[in-house]
Amino acid sequence: MLTFTLRRLLLAIPTLLFISLIIFLLVDLAPGSPMSEIPLTVPPEVRKKMIEALGADQPVFVRYILWLRQFFWVEPANLIDGWFGTNLVGGEQRILSWQSRSPVFTVIGQRIPQTLTVIGTAYLVGIAIAMPIGIYSAYRQYSVFDQIGTLIAMIGFSVPTFFSGTLFIIVFAVWLPWLPTKYDTTLAVTDWSSFLQQLRQMAMPVMVLALANAAAISRYMRSSMLENMGQDYVRTARAKGMTERVVVLKHVLRNSLIPVVTVIALGIPSIFGGAIITENLFGVNGIGAALIGAIHANDLPMVQTLAFIFAVLIVVFNLIADILYGLLDPRIRYE
């Protein structure tokens, strides 16, 4: 397992370098320029100077090499400096956002907590809803419960979050003035009432995302359960005279969880990726909102860095999913 992991990690390095180049070029070659954000009242000469000050007039490969250096040397060095008080950076420029002129990693650092709390909670809630629904739907395939579960999953799949989000706002904030529509990121949880306040402001984005997550995961759970439900060993378990509880929850569920756990692990990078639409709708200043804001403003360093971090997370969580698979399924051994 260890050699397998090491080999995969080594292989990931050229993969990621290649991905970083592709991302950089794609983002760069995409139409649009940071110029489009500057109002027309700013004369062309001034615009030109502003672009020069951003370094946006440099050729793409110069910027790519600089970005590589910043990403792989300056930023880690800066982190080490922060921990140990060393001075490895030596005044070198970090990756700066064109939009806010602040270091991209500072922005990401500010946003990760919100994304993890809101999107992470939504993911957990989604899983918590999806598991029992998926299990019971499979156990009682084609029953009324299963049909309703299928319907809800279809709705969760097909209704876009901007729609369900707006609907929730109208119901829970406008008609019934229970929940706030804008997430207050400055709220510090210090006591019971601020904790309740935090729960209230998380409620809507979490519900919206949990519905979408639960839809997908419950379907995976259901189909995995169904696949195992028809296996001989389940018949064996019944023939042994096990109770239905044991048959379903021990024999079937434990085997069905293997693929579902890997699907869940593969979905974790999307937690870090945030939820672009939902975050934007509820004013949660997470990574997703940062990404869409940066795309709108043609803030290339931000977009490139975020996209690359997602790529890294996806590669890493793919590896984690593979390792989990090996741990959960005794039939699989990596050499």
Partner: peptide, 19 residues
């Protein structure tokens, strides 16, 4: 009643819980 009556299955691989 099940202890009285048992079954030996055709596919010994599939009929045993892999975990």
């Amino acid at each position: 009643k099940r202890p009285t009556m048992q079954m030996v299955f055709q596919d010994p691989q599939a009929s045993l819980n892999p975990r």
